[in-house]
Amino acid sequence: MSSEHMQIGEVAARTELSLRTIRYYEDTGLVTPSACSQGGFRLYTERDVARLMVIRRMKPLGFTLDQMRDLLHAADRLDAPEPPEGAELEALLVRVRHFEQLTAECVADLRKQLGRAEEFAGTLRERLERVPCPTPA
């Protein structure tokens, strides 16, 4: 096995995704192991890890598998050895900008939720501070 290849356990540790989740993303076609060992083990590269990290970051923001697939396809085309030109390049950039905008909206929503959660935690803290502490007997 080449030093540039990793088995699924190492990939799981690096991405903080479970083996089951990685296999699920394989089954849905979002990621494909780059190689297979003689013993039949899936082998991954840094590029595969980077792809899984994109998926991991998109999932909690509510992106669907189809949206993930769309963004990954656009990124693959933009990173291709012979990058697209002209109308195809512009279409890919429009798609990536769209995902950037959606992500910014998700971040803004999460900031609002975090602010509300912090306010709530503060309210609970204040309530607890108003209650006299019982003295030990």
Rank of each mutant, 00 (worst) to 15 (best):
D76M: 09
L102M: 15
P83L: 00
L61V: 10
M68H: 02
E90H: 08
E82W: 10
E90R: 12
E85H: 13
Q101D: 11
L78A: 13
E90F: 05
P81V: 09
H98W: 05
E82H: 12
T123I: 10
D79T: 07
A104H: 12
L72S: 07
L92K: 08
E118S: 10
L92N: 06
Q113A: 06
L102I: 13
E90A: 12
L78R: 10
E85P: 10
T64G: 06
E119Y: 06
M68K: 03
C106S: 11
E105K: 14
A104R: 11
L72T: 02
A80V: 00
L93P: 10
E88L: 11
R56M: 05
V54K: 07
T103V: 07
L65A: 05
A75M: 08
L92M: 09
M53L: 15
A80E: 00
E90Y: 06
V107D: 13
V96C: 00
G62N: 00
D70S: 09
H98P: 01
G115Q: 15
A87H: 12
P81Q: 09
V96Q: 03
E119Q: 10
Q101P: 02
E105T: 14
Q113W: 04
M58D: 01
V96S: 02
L114F: 15
L71K: 05
V94Y: 14
R111E: 11
E90L: 12
A87M: 15
E100R: 04
E105S: 13
E90K: 09
A121C: 12
E85C: 14
Q113M: 13
L114Q: 15
T103W: 03
D70T: 11
M58P: 02
F99E: 06
K112E: 11
G122E: 14
Q113D: 06
L89R: 13
D109A: 14
V96F: 00
R116Q: 02
V107N: 12
E88I: 05
E82M: 14
V54D: 05
E85K: 14
E119T: 07
H73G: 02
A104Q: 11
R116Y: 01
E88K: 05
F63I: 07
L65Q: 01
A108P: 05
E85Q: 15
A91S: 11
L89D: 12
A104D: 14
V54I: 14
M68T: 06
F120Y: 11
R69V: 05
R97E: 13
A91L: 08
F63M: 04
L72H: 01
A87F: 11
T123P: 01
P84I: 06
K59V: 11
L110P: 04
L61Q: 10
V96W: 01
Q67D: 10
R57T: 00
R77L: 10
K112V: 08
V107F: 06
V96Y: 02
E85F: 11
A91W: 01
M53G: 12
A121E: 11
L102D: 13
A87R: 13
M53V: 14
H73A: 09
A117P: 04
F120M: 12
E88M: 07
L92I: 04
M58K: 00
F63N: 04
L61R: 09
